[in-house]
Design a protein around this nucleic acid. Structure first.
Lengths: 329, 329
DNA sequence: CTGAAAGCGCTTACAG
DNA sequence: CTGAAAGCGCTTACAG
């Protein structure tokens, strides 16, 4: 079945296609009676303007591009949840661009060729230099870009994020206040922006308390970190553990308990994400809570403002964090 | 900075735009020397054809639509992982369509208006009738559609799935073989396709063994199901538990242990997903393993074949499952 | 093998 | 308020 076009509508409503177009885009410029007639035909025919043609003619696609690496990470899907809900509200379509296994220049050429009106950048695995390539290409093509749950020092770009440094600082302080001294931070071998920020906050709190900061790097893969932790207990003394990822914290707890340490009596444990893992562990996990869904939603909202040239209070949005105390601390 | 168009390339290479177009789409029809010259200019200028214009002219967008409801569910993001990797390989772009809070007719009108070349349908929360609306609209617009991790009885549509019924049947049998009799299935209050299939398999195994099938429905929300399970222990005897979701199984285990039941000595527990939760629980969780990422990848591959009118061995792909024994059974 | 021209389905000045 | 016409950046028969 051929799709109904603007010509079909124009014919049936006995107006020109320009008028049909106006009814859809600038209804106030059309005589109310004509407008109603056209609207009626549109409804009858189930007409919906072809987005591609519209995009070409208007040079606006009402589509945003989302650049991400690993979509299976829980934080990424949370971000996407927020983005989708807001995008829907403002009637933007979303195109996904994966940044893995591709040259950044090619990726951006792709993004530009797809004629998106704006870009949300979610990939926190790139370093500052790499991000700058992305940013420059977007600027060249005059496409607004919002960093989503990503940031970097001295950054002038729009972003939505949480103050991971401050949040981790507060959580570490709280653990110190409970009398813990041998506190380790469990981070990943691979560097991510958010984890780097968390490390900063941890180090700051430890140093302020004249305690030695100790970062132990492991993998997010349970079968790997389990082995690391077994090894860890053979030659480390520890009474506090903070982990950039909840799952790593839970894995550590399991190994600790197996090694006859009590949580929280012997070792306090805390996570820096507040995912579902924190609720399903025994004991339940104290966490820094960061509103990841909201970051996605707010970033998308900010992007809509940029695309529509609406007034913007601030290009830099920092969402509030909190600490949720559970059994492990 | 204005983007380079096909005219720029044609001008610089001193050929017509038709030739440039041919170099991109039918290089064999162009004289090798001319081709090289054009290719060189394309590279120099960093030219990438505008996807929108190309889509309009060729009536192919090289874009697929992905219809989903809740992207934050782990199984959905796993599916997407597989889809993205294959889509990239075959150079398809992906557009996301959320089916929540929208009339299906409107949703499909949208999908059609966006001129996608094919559709992957991931939403397993719709019932058969609703899916048929989607299917019909896709057929009207002549857009191939592949059901991804979804299916329904008597279905003639292309799909990629796992035999959840058989897998659950096998797992239930294994538990029965270990001597368990009071085996419950924990399912969700809300109905999903895959969960319905799992329920079937469980019921079949129980009936074959002359045991009473018992389905207990709860929520995926830990704070809710925890209360349900506390209540459950007051008036149920149970020596086996199988859960459609791993997280529910873990939550149940935690409550069971709190109520002084030993797992697996007193109660065998198993999950039907094999997510990371299964590795992080104490004891670790025996699971039915279903290759969700692969389902996404295979579904996308099937869709590419449909879109390119390639030969297809089978429109119905059932991926293999397995049972992973851990400590809880 | 190559170019001129029509057309994809819209939007948007420009006249009237 | 409405229509005729140009144009968005491509593809694709059609000639030559």
């Amino acid at each position: 079945m051929a799709n109904t076009t603007i010509y079909d509508v124009a014919g049936a409503a006995k107006v020109s296609l320009a008028t049909v177009s106006r009814v859809m885009n600038n209804p106030e410029k059309v005589n109310p009676e004509t407008r109603e007639r056209v609207l009626k035909v549109i409804k009858e025919l189930g007409y919906k303007p072809n987005a591609i043609a519209r995009g070409l003619a208007s040079r606006k696609s009402t589509t945003i591009g989302i650049i991400l690496s690993d979509i299976t990470r829980a934080s990424v899907s949370q971000l996407l949840g927020g983005i989708i809900d807001v995008a829907k509200k403002y009637d933007y379509s979303m195109k996904l661009f994966s940044s893995s296994n591709i040259q950044l220049e090619d990726l951006m050429r792709n993004v530009v060729a797809e004629q998106v009106d704006g870009v949300l950048f979610l990939n926190e695995e790139l370093n500052k230099e790499e991000i700058e390539v992305v940013v420059e290409k977007a600027k060249d093509a005059d496409i607004p870009l919002v960093l989503t749950n990503v940031n970097f020092a001295g950054n002038m770009l729009p972003y939505a994020i949480v103050d991971y440094t401050e949040g981790t600082y507060e959580l570490t302080k709280r653990m110190i206040d409970k009398g813990r001294k041998d506190i380790y931070l469990f981070s990943t071998v691979r560097h991510y922006f958010t984890n780097d920020l968390k490390e900063e906050g941890y180090i700051k709190a430890m140093k302020e308390a004249n305690l030695e900061p100790r970062i132990f790097r492991t993998s997010g893969d349970v079968s790997i970190n389990k082995v690391h932790f077994e090894e860890f207990f053979k030659n480390h003394s520890i009474d506090g553990a903070i982990s950039v990822r909840d799952s790593i914290a839970v894995s550590f707890m399991n190994v600790a308990i197996k090694n006859n340490r009590r949580v929280p009596e012997d070792i306090s444990v805390a996570g820096l994400q507040n995912t579902k893992y924190a609720l399903l562990s025994r004991p339940t996990l104290t966490c820094l809570d960061t509103p990841v869904y909201d970051i996605g939603a707010v970033a998308m909202r900010l992007l809509t403002k940029l695309m529509r040239h609406e007034e913007i209070e601030s290009l830099h949005i920092v969402l509030p964090h909190s600490i949720i105390e559970r059994e492990s601390l």
